[in-house]
Amino acid sequence: MTDPVERLGPQELGTYFVLLEALSLLQHQVEQQVQADGGLSYIQFQLLGRLVGAEGPLTMTQLADGVVYSRSGLTYQAGLLEKAGLITRAPSPDDERATLVSITDAGRELFHRVLPGHVEVTRRMLFDSLTADDLDHLGDIMTRVRDHMRAQPPRSAAPRKRRPKNN
Rank of each mutant, 00 (worst) to 15 (best):
G73W: 03
N167H: 09
R89V: 08
L13P: 00
T99C: 01
D136L: 14
L110M: 07
P159W: 03
D134A: 04
L40P: 06
L47R: 02
G79C: 05
R155V: 10
E31W: 00
Q44R: 13
Q35F: 11
G39I: 08
G56M: 05
S156Q: 06
A151I: 03
R123A: 08
R7I: 14
R124Q: 13
R150L: 15
V68W: 01
T104G: 04
Y69Q: 08
T2K: 08
V121Q: 03
P91T: 06
A36H: 13
F111W: 12
G49W: 04
L100F: 05
R144I: 00
H148I: 02
A158R: 14
R89H: 02
P91A: 14
E12N: 02
R108E: 13
V145F: 11
R155P: 02
T15V: 07
P153D: 06
V52Y: 06
D3I: 03
Q11T: 12
N166L: 12
V101C: 10
K161R: 14
R71M: 14
R162E: 13
R146S: 10
L126V: 15
L86E: 02
M60I: 10
V68P: 00
T75N: 12
Q33Y: 01
A132T: 14
R150S: 09
K165N: 01
S102D: 11
G139H: 10
L135M: 12
L100C: 04
P91H: 06
L25E: 13
L74Y: 04
A78W: 00
G117N: 07
L48F: 08
L8D: 04
A84S: 13
G53D: 13
L100K: 04
V34G: 07
D134W: 03
G85W: 08
V68K: 06
E6R: 11
S24E: 11
Y16L: 15
D134C: 06
L126K: 00
D140L: 11
P10S: 10
I141T: 15
L81N: 03
P154Y: 04
T104I: 06
R144M: 09
V52H: 08
D94T: 11
D95Q: 05
L130Y: 08
G107R: 03
L58S: 05
V145M: 12
R146C: 01
Y42V: 08
D3A: 10
S102W: 03
R160A: 14
G14I: 01
P4E: 09
L81M: 07
D37W: 01
L80E: 14
D94N: 12
L48I: 06
A158S: 10
A98L: 09
L80T: 04
T104P: 05
M125I: 03
P116G: 08
D133V: 10
E55H: 12
Q46H: 10
G79N: 09
K161Q: 11
L135E: 13
H112D: 13
D65A: 06
V67P: 02
N166I: 06
